[in-house]
Amino acid sequence: MTSLTIPGPLAAAPGSGWRKAKDRIATTVIYGSFLLALVPLVWLLWTVLSRGLHAITSDGWFTGSQRGITYRDGGGGALHAIVGTVEQVALCTVISVPIALLVAIYLVEYGRGPLARATTFMVDILTGIPSIVAALFIYAVFVTSFSGQRAGWLVSLALVMLMIPVVVRTTEEMLRLVPNELREASYALGVPKWKTIVKIVLPTAMSGIMTGIVLGVARVAGETAPLLVLVGYSPNDNSNLFSGPQGSLPGMIKDQFGNLGSTTILRGGHKVSVHYAADRMWGAALTLILLVMALNLLARLIASRSKVSS
């Protein structure tokens, strides 16, 4: 689109050769930067897919745990980790969504004055809070101050701090897209404000809100820092969020990462080099990526059914 060449007297002004060259260089650099960004994405996804596929297609990956399996043993599953991640994220979602929706409603439908400005600012700050700081805060409150034990639910609490800003931001944006005409139409029918919000505004923005929630879930599902601080990793099945170490997909990746490298074992009288831990690590990584990508895809799908256009 930039290579429109104009022939004849219109073309060559003095210095135009260099200008054109600069233009061409810029175009190349700009296209190149996009291609450059594709390199790590494709490379990373390919690595995880090619190295993880073996593990997740093996028997018992989705039904077994890592109980009693050392880095010298093959096999074992990731069910304990999937269960832990799903539970922790589910509890986090149950806590985050109502708070986040209310905050967004406040900011769009009610908020004026200093509290609204402070809230907006704090949502921005929460968006940028490092996950390790959120984890330390929960630790300082529940473990140091109230002498609680590390457990899965504390991870959920730390994740709440990371999920709320994501859901608030998208919900806020969606609520602002709901035309004021609909609110006015509702008021003009004699519908009180709260019912206008609950029955007209929220349903109209619902698909966008759902998208925000799903993106929030995807964001926290892969969080690792809170796991390190707030719950021990367990290779066993533990579906109890409130007691004991618990497995999780990021935790499993970290655990297997600690035993990378090849191991020599005796098989049928021969020394064989194997990479059980690496296989499982990439398997867990692939499982996590599939989970997160599925959530992202779901978010796209919901967003495409939106009643309000962005």
Binding site: E181, E184, I200
Partner: peptide, 17 residues
């Protein structure tokens, strides 16, 4: 008041949901 006095707006605005 608004229950007693209805209103029709410039642009048609049926509830989209």
């Amino acid at each position: 008041v608004r229950r007693t006095i209805g209103m029709v707006f410039q642009r048609p605005n049926p509830f989209p949901t």
